[in-house]
Design a binder for these strands. Sequence first.
DNA 1: TATCCTTGTTCCACCAATCGGAACGCTGTC
DNA 2: GACAGCGTTCCGATTGGTGGAACAAGGATA
Lengths: 267, 267
Amino acid sequence: MRPSEGSTGTSQSLARGLAILSTFHSDRPLIGVSELSRGLELSRSTVHRYVATLAKLGYLQQDPDSKRYRLGPKVLDLGFSALNSMDLLEVSAPHLRRLSDETQRTVNVAILDGTDVVYIERCRAARPGQQQIDLNLHVGARLPAYCTAMGKAILAFLSEERLEEVIERIDFVPRGPNTLTDPKAFREELVKIRASGIAINDEELAYGLRSIAAPIYSQSGDVLAALNLAIHRTIVSMEELVERFAPAVIQTASDISLSMGHRLAPA
Amino acid sequence: MRPSEGSTGTSQSLARGLAILSTFHSDRPLIGVSELSRGLELSRSTVHRYVATLAKLGYLQQDPDSKRYRLGPKVLDLGFSALNSMDLLEVSAPHLRRLSDETQRTVNVAILDGTDVVYIERCRAARPGQQQIDLNLHVGARLPAYCTAMGKAILAFLSEERLEEVIERIDFVPRGPNTLTDPKAFREELVKIRASGIAINDEELAYGLRSIAAPIYSQSGDVLAALNLAIHRTIVSMEELVERFAPAVIQTASDISLSMGHRLAPA
DNA sequence: TATCCTTGTTCCACCAATCGGAACGCTGTC
DNA sequence: GACAGCGTTCCGATTGGTGGAACAAGGATA
């Protein structure tokens, strides 16, 4: 290959190995060496070496029948080390539970990663409502930030500089009946959120899905994450959702920020 | 295949990169290049190349202040791909929830990985009991199989061959007041479990911790996982625990096995 | 302020770890 | 029985990896 690639100072083998790992997905749990080699445009022997390494370390497991590979339990360790490294989790857990008990609703916490939000914690309603809205939203799930309340709640409080970076990379695609697809309108929405302290999502992600979210701050005053509460449209109107739940959501988010060491007045 | 043949046919770089990743732990969330290089006995430049690669791909993030690194949200993707690859999860979720509602207890599902059990799903009691037993037992957590009810429930139904392999690698260390530390006694215990279909843990892992577990079978009739229900000693006696909860636990485990395609009579 | 650490980072010439073609054994299909 | 696909192993050629040296930045000490 050309030495003039943009990859100086990085390890090819490591990148390839990780590329192999991340090829495995919920919908493609079992993959063989040949299939991988075609996908990554590498020889079967090379792929086999990587796969053998991953298997030896427990990150992959070979299915005895089909000889193909699946993710091993070892990768769970990584994921949960990441989760537990965030003290945000420990701090927010009791607050989440309280909010969930009070409102009898499922509530979530997510962080921003690139242009996505990543769920890092959820507390389900003790007594599930009749309308379960579950877009496969487990912890670890990703959604585009621009069409979620949590995403907007975080973006609204980023520095102008960082916001610019993120917005440039957003692909504004319609996802629900009311998705904001115009960057200008989106910016205006963020201004409103910054003023009110609460972000709403009225079927911007999917039909029927309504949600409100508030930002969580770190000790240094930066936005760290967001807290949300989602309900199906058949249960409450948007006005009712805001009126009934917004104060509790804002209060809880603020409590969490406080527990994280945040002292009022974001810089 | 030759035994003790070190690293033929495996990728050194990949192994090292993953070693770096797994150095990050809940209790050591931030690590610098120099610290890593000392721990792995590699030069700082080499470690830096790996770290740069991991950071570029989103598996690590650099803290702007301390210049040290932490796990990035990208590793969550891996962990949750692994979790969602198991259709056991989807299948067992409703059963778990029902059992938890019925018993008002926290119930768990775990699989075997080496000599450990790994929690892959948990359903917490809707109304938490006064005595919360939480040894940091989130999904993804590991415990030694030999001193847990779920571990014993799985081991008891392994083939003699596989059991042999596992037992040889177990380090029988006392963990609670009643830990089984004699391999012979342990084997006898497994025979009992195989006969009764239920595994009990009476303070073998930790003081005060009691638990019962039943095996879950795959379509092919192999043990796949185990389901448990744990309670603190102050709440029920061992007899009461078995009497009151064992039938429901066994029934639920059996329901899950059935949903997985298992048809009666384990081989 | 001047010094001496240590840190993360970059560069580069050397060399060993990695690469991929070829071949093997196996398992299904036609 | 021939064939095609798979996972796996081997080995010589070479490319990607290695680590020492050097740099800038930050902290601590004096």
